[in-house]
C-alpha cells in the first residue's frame, strides 16, 4: 500500500510537470490542456457526488452552463468582467452554480439510484431547453461568442498566461475539494455512500449532508463554467446538452470514481482522444464509444483502481500457491 504522503507527492510532481511542460509545447496542446483542466473542475465536482456521496448525477453540465452563460452574457451585453471585475464574475459564477444546485437539490436529493439519475436528467434538460430556445438571452442554437478575454495587469489573450490562470484555479479547486473530502464532513459523506441507513441511525442528518454536497458541487461547476466560457470563446447549448453531462460522468469513472485526480486523468484522456484523434481519422468516435464500453465492462474501478486489482489478483494467486503447497505437504 502506497502511503498517503507518497500519493500527494506523486500528484504534486505530476501537476508541476504539467505546469512546466505544457507552456513549452505548441498552441494546440496548450489549448487542449486548458480545456481539459477547466472541464476537470466540473468532473471533480461530480466526483464529490458520485465517488464520495454515491449520487450519480446526469445533469452536471447544467452548472457549467450557468457559469458559462453568466460569463458570456455579462461580457457581451454589459461589457462586465473584462477587467479586474473578472474576479467578481468568478464569484458570481460560483454563487450562480451553487444557487441553481440549491434549487435543484430540493427536488433531487430525496431520490436515489435510478430515480436520482432520471431527475437530474430532467433538471439538466430544463437548463438545456432555456439555453436552446431563449434566443433573446442565450443566442439560441448559435450560442454567444466572446470576443475578448479579460485584461487586468496581465493579458489573458495570451494563451500561456491564460493556461496558468486556469491551472491556478484548477489547483486551488483540487486542494479545496481534497480538504473537503478528508474533513469530518467528507467522511460522513463516504459513510452515507456506504450505509445511509446506519448513518441515519447514528443521528446524522443524511439529507442535509447530501444537500450541502450537492450545492458545493454546483458551486465548483459554476466556476468551471466561467473558465470554460473564456477557454472556448463560445458558449452554446452544446455545453449543457445531455451528452456533456454523460461525458463528465465517463471521465470520472474512467479515471476512477472517489479519487478526485482520477477525474482529471479521465478529462485529459477524453479531451485528448476527441481533439487529437478527430484531426487524424474520421472514425474517432468508434474509439470514444469503445472507451466507454471497455471502461464499464472491464474497468469499473477506473484507471486509478488498476493497482488495487492487480494486487488482489496477486494475493489470490499466492493464496492458491500456498494452498497447493500445503496439500502437497499433507499427502
Amino acid at each position: 500500500m502506497v502511503s498517503q504522503t507518497t500519493k500527494i507527492m506523486i500528484v504534486v510532481a505530476a501537476l508541476a510537470a504539467l505546469a512546466i511542460i505544457v507552456p513549452n509545447t505548441n498552441s494546440f496542446v496548450i489549448l487542449l490542456a486548458t480545456r481539459a483542466l477547466a472541464f476537470a473542475i466540473l468532473v471533480m465536482s461530480l466526483d464529490i457526488l458520485l465517488g464520495y456521496t454515491g449520487l450519480a448525477s446526469l445533469g452536471q453540465a447544467a452548472y457549467l452552463g450557468v457559469g458559462a452563460y453568466m460569463t458570456a452574457i455579462l461580457a457581451t451585453k454589459y461589457q462586465f468582467g473584462l477587467g479586474y471585475d473578472f474576479w467578481l464574475v468568478v464569484v458570481f459564477g460560483i454563487l450562480g452554480g451553487a444557487a441553481l444546485a440549491a434549487v435543484f437539490g430540493l427536488l433531487a436529493i430525496r431520490a436515489s439510484g435510478t430515480y436520482f439519475l432520471m431527475i437530474t436528467l430532467a433538471l439538466g434538460q430544463c437548463v438545456w431547453g432555456l439555453a436552446y430556445r431563449w434566443n433573446s438571452l442565450t443566442g439560441g442554437d448559435n450560442g454567444i461568442n466572446l470576443r475578448q478575454r479579460p485584461k487586468f495587469g496581465i493579458d489573458l489573450a495570451n494563451e500561456v498566461t491564460f493556461f496558468y490562470l486556469v491551472f491556478a484555479f484548477f489547483a486551488v479547486s483540487l486542494l479545496a475539494m481534497y480538504v473537503l473530502v478528508r474533513s469530518p464532513f467528507g467522511r460522513s459523506l463516504t459513510g452515507i455512500r456506504e450505509q445511509e441507513l446506519r448513518m441515519k441511525i447514528l443521528g446524522y442528518n443524511t439529507w442535509l449532508h447530501k444537500y450541502i454536497a450537492f450545492i458545493i458541487a454546483g458551486g465548483f461547476g459554476g466556476l468551471s463554467g466561467v473558465l470554460w466560457a473564456h477557454t472556448a470563446g463560445i458558449v452554446s447549448p452544446e455545453n449543457v446538452v445531455l451528452t456533456t453531462s454523460v461525458d463528465a460522468l465517463l471521465m470520472a469513472v474512467l479515471g476512477g470514481a472517489g479519487t478526485l485526480v482520477g477525474g482529471v486523468i479521465g478529462s485529459f484522456i477524453v479531451f485528448g482522444l476527441r481533439e487529437y484523434l478527430s484531426t487524424l481519422v474520421p472514425w474517432w468516435q468508434y474509439v470514444l464509444g469503445g472507451v466507454y464500453v471497455l471502461t464499464i465492462l472491464y474497468l469499473p474501478s477506473g484507471l486509478m483502481g488498476i493497482p488495487e486489482r492487480i494486487r488482489q489478483r496477486r494475493l489470490a494467486s499466492s493464496n492458491k500457491a500456498a494452498d497447493s503447497k500445503k496439500l502437497a505437504a499433507a499427502s
Binding site: A56, T114, L117, T243, L250, V253, Y292, V293
Partner: peptide, 11 residues
C-alpha cells in the same frame, strides 16, 4: 444503474 447508463451511451 450508472454503469448501465454509460454502457448504453457508449453504444
Amino acid at each position: 444503474p450508472l454503469r448501465q447508463v454509460l454502457l448504453t451511451v457508449g453504444f
